[in-house]
Design a protein around this nucleic acid. Structure first.
Lengths: 253, 253
DNA sequence: ACCTGAACACCGTTCAAGT
DNA sequence: ACCTGAACACCGTTCAAGT
């Protein structure tokens, strides 16, 4: 078999934290979560483990940095603007969408939400990593980044300032929960042909759900059919709109 | 130091998948995600690794079973009914809440949501594990369990059947996202005195957020103060109500 | 059928030594 | 200041052997 990528030529660029994080993201995308090892990293960067440890404290920090880089790009850009290379450094301010009427702040929320959704689709490991990062390291950079980009749009909605935190939290939580679950791609595939593997997969789940015990799972069985033809992004956006509708109904009415 | 729990007496019960899962949950609760190793399990159960592998295919399956056991108990019971011992096997049908008027289906949703929330607080490893389980194994038992218990209440709301899937998904996604992020307990503490460690922690986050760059993070800084005194459960429920309000506003109105 | 425990391949991390 | 690479402790998993 011997699938050797003969990338172990002499190193041309100097090692740097940025280059290490970049390589980590590539490895995660290519080989999945279990593919990111210091040995693989070491080979790809043509160096030794000690060198990596000089730039990065440990694996947890490396995963955090990889997550942060991808998230930064996602919230800055909006939905899949096809950035081929992931650049760890992102512009400070997101490009302004349509100059802001109060109503199109809702579109802003949708835009950021889709940006995160697409990022998770492109980088399936993000789903798990986001959960890890947000729950055991909320003082890090990842949470504020997401919070800020959603929150700005929320503050442009007409919602009393005292509710900003609650509303933003609800949106962020929905987005992360939904994006996470929908990012079910077979590991390794860079871009999945949208019609083929995916439809097959949904079919499998739908069938499995239809075969559940009728006494224990009446609802899930009843609804299994609806999963078959559905479009993930559409579904995801419908959920965002549901929350936005709740915001409108609850505040300023 | 030699902190030996001298639990390695001769085994009294026979080994079984159930007992292994139970021990795994205890280990996860006590020592965190990194504390669950086959060696620790082996010592606690007074056996060898081979014996465990006879009952369980691998670590991934073990984690899945542990997650499933805890989730099953959570959705069956509702908010923290203080089950001291986690019983992997759960009753088939959840105990009926107040006999169902259409309006109290909303209370049903709140009840299940709080049940999951509390479960994650009691078992912080659930947050990460749920994300893993749901995203790379949706044909497992965990997803249908959660889906069913929320979905039943949704179908008792007056929402057209064609929207059941969308609405249930949105609720489940919010619940998992929110519960996940809020489950920030210091690892190891079984029950945390609610007023002490937690307030200190929120204080730290709030302060950190106030010190962010004013140009990049105006919103997060503005809202940092609101995090200080807030009650997680209250916040969580407010989000559930926001989604429910959205459902009411969008459907059958 | 169920369990034992030594052994294997692999992993994250350290550190004395080099430039 | 930055990098090398051997070495260490530990982990999930296997398997021939026992009962």
């Amino acid at each position: 078999m011997a699938t050797r990528t003969r990338r172990s030529q002499r190193r041309t660029q100097a090692l740097s934290r940025e280059r290490i994080v970049e390589a980590a993201v590539e490895l995660l995308d290519t080989a999945g979560e279990s593919g990111l090892t210091f040995r693989a990293l070491t080979e790809r960067l043509a160096t030794g483990p000690g060198a990596i440890y000089w730039h990065v404290a440990n694996k947890e920090e490396l995963l955090g940095a990889a997550t942060d880089a991808v998230v930064a790009a996602a919230v800055a850009i909006g939905p899949s603007a096809a950035t081929a290379t992931t650049s760890p450094a992102a512009p400070a301010t997101p490009p302004a969408e349509e100059a802001g009427a109060a109503g199109s702040a809702q579109d802003g929320v949708r835009l950021v939400a889709l940006g995160l959704f697409d990022a998770i689709v492109r980088h399936p490991w993000l789903a798990t990593q986001l959960a890890t990062q947000l729950s055991r390291n909320p003082w890090g950079t990842v949470t504020p980044r997401i919070f800020e980009s959603i929150g700005r749009r929320v503050s442009a909605l007409d919602v009393p300032e005292s509710s900003w935190f609650t509303v933003t939290s609800a949106l962020v939580h929905y987005i992360l929960g939904a994006a996470g679950q929908n990012a079910v791609n077979k590991a390794g595939a860079r871009t999945l042909a949208p019609g083929v593997d995916r439809a097959e997969f949904l079919d499998t789940v739908s069938t499995a759900w239809e075969e559940l015990d009728p006494d224990e799972y009446p609802f899930t069985r009843a609804v299994a059919e609806q999963i078959r033809g559905h479009d993930d992004r559409e579904q995801f956006l419908a959920g965002v709109d549901l929350v936005l509708a709740g915001v409108t109904a609850t505040h300023h009415r």
